[in-house]
Simulated assay, not measured.
Amino acid sequence: MLRVGVIMGGDSSEREVSLMTGREIISHLDPAKYEVRPIEITRKRDLPQQLAGIDMAVIALHGKYGEDGTIQGTLETLGVPYTGSGVLASSLCMDKNTAKKLLRYEGVETPDWMLLTSPDELENVLASEPLYPLVVKPNSGGSSVGVTLARDEQSLREAVERAFHWDDEVILEQYIEGEEITCSLLNGEYLPVLAIKPNGEFFDYTSKYEEGECEEVVASLDPDTAEQVRRAAELSCRVLKCSVYARVDVMLHQGIPYVMEVNTLPGMTRTSLLPKSALAAGLSFSALLDRIIEGSLAERRREYGLVV
């Protein structure tokens, strides 16, 4: 059997989501195929000792040090194969400002944005009379932690303050009104596109992780729009060097897909989108994990010669 270590926890703002992802993964790994060891970390230096005897690491971390290439580089240095994208893709996708620049350069539609590197820079933004609403989010992070929709100056000030609590750089992004969808990649194939219908104003942390706060269904797209979405997702993953699996979040506005961001380690909790998309394709959670592990082993062999 393959000896698998599920790395979860960490010390980012998404620690609790990571623990949910890790526990869900552990509960669905086939005990007939894998000898599973939970590895809950709080500090990076805890990791090497806990990896002793492990054939492969299943990364269930989210946020900084988990999705930004840090843990991937550590595992490569230690010679331990791991799941998901490599160092470069992880670091590019975690930095929203850099990812959006690359996407726009390659012709992928993405909402207009600006980067704040200090709270003081907000005064210049306000002086330019920004067009509301604006989506305010930490530049490096996920799970909608610290994300707010600002509709006026007061709410913008509060949103920027909240986002800087989580990161030292903040994105102000044009709000695109339309149908929110997500497109998942698995070993070069695209799973059914899901439409996201939150109960609240937008797809925030509560909508993502509280059961009953959001409805996700297979999107009803006409053939032309479906092809545009697929091309945008495919190009985004290619530009950002993603491999094995990823989730591309898109807002459809007047038939145009605007790529919001690309997730290299999308959530795998009970309410997460990737397992739901896989299920719509006829893949159980356990089968999805098998595909991720198989694809990741092949990718690590191809990239670095890491073998089990």
Rank of each mutant, 00 (worst) to 15 (best):
F202L: 03
G9F: 09
S155C: 09
I171T: 01
I59K: 07
S91R: 12
V262Y: 04
P275C: 05
L134N: 04
L51E: 03
Q174G: 04
T206G: 14
K137E: 03
G200Y: 08
T206R: 14
Y175V: 01
P133A: 15
P133W: 15
R43S: 07
R302P: 03
E216Y: 11
T182A: 05
M268D: 02
Y245P: 01
L172P: 00
V58I: 14
R302E: 10
I181L: 08
A32H: 01
M94C: 10
E106P: 00
Y34L: 01
G295V: 04
S140R: 15
T117R: 08
V244E: 03
Q174K: 10
G200W: 07
E173V: 00
S272H: 07
P81R: 15
R230H: 15
L19Y: 00
H165Q: 11
K137V: 06
T117A: 04
F202T: 00
V250H: 05
R270V: 14
G63K: 03
V218G: 08
L78M: 10
V145W: 02
V239R: 12
H62Q: 05
G63V: 01
P192C: 10
E211T: 12
A233V: 10
E123Y: 14
V145A: 04
G146M: 13
G63D: 01
E227I: 12
E180M: 04
H165A: 11
L29D: 00
A246G: 09
T83V: 09
I176H: 03
K241P: 02
L61R: 04
E161I: 06
I41G: 01
L265Y: 08
R43Q: 12
T98Q: 13
A281R: 09
E180H: 07
L131Q: 15
D95M: 13
G282D: 11
I292R: 04
G66R: 01
V6L: 12
D249A: 13
R15L: 07
S220A: 15
R37I: 02
L185F: 11
D168Y: 14
R3C: 07
T269K: 11
V36T: 02
K137F: 10
V229Q: 13
I39E: 00
E294N: 11
V218Y: 06
P266K: 06
L103Q: 01
L235S: 07
G295N: 06
V6R: 05
M94K: 06
A57G: 01
I54K: 01
M268P: 02
M20F: 05
G73C: 11
T110Y: 05
V80Q: 02
V248L: 12
P48Y: 07
S12E: 03
Y258M: 09
L92D: 03
R300F: 08
G79Q: 12
D168I: 08
A281L: 08
S284D: 07
Q228E: 15
E303R: 12
A163G: 10
E294S: 13
V193A: 06
L103A: 01
L172Y: 02
I71E: 02
E40M: 11
R157I: 14
S277Y: 05
A233H: 02
E67C: 03
A60E: 05
A226T: 13
V262D: 04
D11M: 12
Y132D: 01
Q50Y: 09
V6C: 13
E158V: 08
D224R: 13
S284F: 06
